[in-house]
Nucleic acid binder design. Structure first.
Length: 554
RNA sequence: GUCCCUGUAGCUCAGCGGAAUAGAGCGGCUGCCUUCUAAGCAGCGGGUCGCAGGUUCGAAUCCUGCCAGGGACGCCA
């Protein structure tokens, strides 16, 4: 069990025992707040529980703290429990216990940092899900990286995670794509043709047409137009999806499932979902269209699900899709990562989930805010319709996958961000990405030297690790499980990026102050080798959870 | 007009289930390479936490209003 929970447990029990013994009024206990104090002299963990109890019990916080402290049993991990004004209870970890944790980290190896928050519950994370009508740009990259890191974190937190890309391959945008492609195809073959007004004007469409001509020649031009548009369009879609997949793989983003929107119509789930809503009384006909009456659920307005021409809207298929997620596939929890332009969709989606009899709390939507791409001071437009577009893969070409990932992960999804490629490249020498990876490489280098000198440190005695730099490094390492838990609970992968930097700082500082491989003190060398291996585990876990590489040389 | 996100150090951002002198990186200024990678370390300087009220023993954190920036309000997706 994580240390943090253990201490919370000690406090809760102590307060309850104090109440049972009549030393503390039997008021309802609040949730125990436990934090890491800023000042080292305040210990490793501090609780303000006495302060919170002061009003209800009408006692002085310091007195409450004194009473609770008496009921906290001795624990091997804790050397002291101190009462401090205005009413804190401070816990300081035992130095021997800390040293011994190095062995624990080594024993857990690649599972170090894992926690059992999820208890095997099934979580689906759906992200990116861009219409396959054009290449990915930076904004999509942000969602992709966020989603894949979150998937890693939730797995580490004990959830059974499945990642998914929802392919919107039905609907009017797809029709526009097919028409645009057909036009470009004709043009490439020397036929006079004009793009539809709602078409895709990007240069990549002409490239796509050329690529298809290179493979299949002009065979689609010999078909009747309607059939040609469809057959050609399908080939184009397949190629587009393939390109998206490749771009994502370059960033280390993969999916367990590529889910087809069309399948919802083939297997009848679309009809089932609509029937379900109809039976619930949430469907109404008005103005020749069919509406989901979201106003009945407190929404601002109703939404069309079936247009006057009988075709379903995007919202309608999304309803069916969520029916599929919750009812057919029975995910305990579903997380959707959407771009900022979809935020208006969140509340009605939750409303509709509730209308289908599913607890809306099981659906979490993360809105990743806009990314503006810059080159120095210059803004780069990323519109898909206009020809002027910097694709995600171009960004990855320039700054690399690791840097891209770290830059996106170092910000919470809530805040808009500028992605300045100039800066990402220019700063590369002083980059936090390299700072963290460098720590890992330095350890690898130490281990190489140890191997060259044939040092066997299996019998290293970790109890020798008592100095301040050593203990600080251990303390920081031991926070990884807490960070994983926090990041999983708050769905905030950025916390890992900050922690990784702090951990690297502790290592670099230790490295400067403590010579690991020394001819003078073989015993200490062996102990420190163990420490360094443990730190390497913690660092590489961090980097891997973020989907980054942990290089041995730099 | 309604709704969502943001406003913290020169810049980019953490912190926002309230609590002990507000943090990091970059940039600026000082020092530090005979031994495991200086892509490093140690230190200095830098803040009315957008503004105004309110709740509280205690607010960057919670509530209300306002201001500023971005986004959404389609029988597009």
């Amino acid at each position: 069990m994580a240390l943090r929970h253990k201490i919370i447990g000690l406090l809760t029990e102590a307060a309850a025992k104090a109440q049972a013994a009549g030393k503390l009024p039997a008021v309802t206990l609040p949730d125990v707040a436990l934090e890491h104090p800023q000042k080292p002299e305040h210990g490793d963990y501090a609780s303000s529980l006495p302060l919170k109890l002061a009003r209800a019990t009408r006692l002085k916080p310091l007195d409450i703290a004194g009473v609770i402290r008496k009921f906290i049993p001795a624990d091997p991990a804790i050397v002291s429990v101190a009462v401090a004004p205005p009413g804190f209870i401070n816990f300081t970890l035992d130095s021997d216990w800390l040293s011994r944790q190095v062995e624990e980290v080594l024993a857990s190896a690649e599972t170090f940092g894992n926690v059992d928050l999820g208890k095997g519950r099934r979580v689906q994370i759906e992200f990116v899900s861009v219409n396959p009508t054009g290449p990915l740009h930076v904004g999509h990259g942000r969602g992709a990286i966020l989603g894949s890191a979150l998937a890693n974190i939730l797995s580490a937190a004990g959830f059974a995670v499945e990642t998914e890309y929802y392919i919107n391959n039905a609907g009017s945008q797809i029709e526009a794509f097919k028409h645009s492609l057909y036009t470009r195809y004709q043009q490439a073959l020397g036929v006079d043709a004009e793009l539809p007004a709602n078409g895709y004007f990007g240069g990549y469409m002409a490239d796509l047409a050329q690529a298809i001509i290179a493979e299949d020649g002009d065979k689609y031009s010999r078909l009747p137009e309607v059939e040609a548009i469809d057959r050609l369009g399908e080939v184009g879609l397949k190629k587009m999806i393939g390109q998206i997949k490749t771009d994502l793989e370059r960033l280390g983003v993969t999916f367990d499932t590529w889910f087809s929107e069309r399948s919802l119509f083939k297997n009848g789930q679309y009809d089932t979902a609509m029937t379900l809503l109809k039976e619930g009384g949430y469907i109404a006909e008005k103005e020749t269209a069919t509406w989901f009456v979201s106003t009945a659920l407190g929404e601002n307005k109703d939404n069309v699900v079936v247009r006057s021409d009988g075709s379903p809207t995007y919202f309608a298929t999304d309803i069916a899709y969520h029916y599929n997620k919750f009812v057919e596939r029975k995910f305990d929890q579903v997380i959707n990562i959407w771009g900022a332009d979809h935020q208006g969709h969140v509340s009605r989606m939750k409303a509709v989930v509730g209308a289908m009899g599913i607890d809306p709390e099981r659906l979490k939507v993360i809105i990743s805010q806009m990314v503006t791409l810059r080159r120095g001071g210059e803004l780069v437009r990323i519109s898909k319709r206009s020809g002027d577009i910097i694709t995600l893969s171009e960004v990855v070409d320039e700054v690399g996958a690791d840097v891209s990932r770290f830059f996106f992960l170092a910000r919470s999804a809530d805040s808009q961000m500028d992605f300045d490629m100039e800066l990402a490249k220019k700063e590369s020498a002083e980059n936090p990405v390299y700072y963290v990876q460098y720590a890992h490489a330095r350890i690898a280098s130490i281990l190489t030297l140890a191997a060259e000198r044939k040092i066997d440190y299996a019998d290293g005695d970790v109890s020798l690790l008592t100095s301040e730099p050593e203990q600080s490094l251990i303390r920081k390492m031991l926070l990884l499980p807490e960070v994983v838990e926090m990041a999983a609970k708050s769905l905030g992968p950025h916390q890992l990026a900050y922690y990784a930097q702090e951990l690297a700082t502790m290592f670099h500082s230790f490295y400067k102050q403590c010579r690991v491989i020394s001819r003078d003190d073989a015993g200490l060398s062996k102990a420190r080798l163990k420490l360094v291996v443990a730190a390497k585990i913690a660092l590489s876990r961090c980097l891997h959870l973020m989907g980054m590489t942990a290089p041995d040389t730099m």
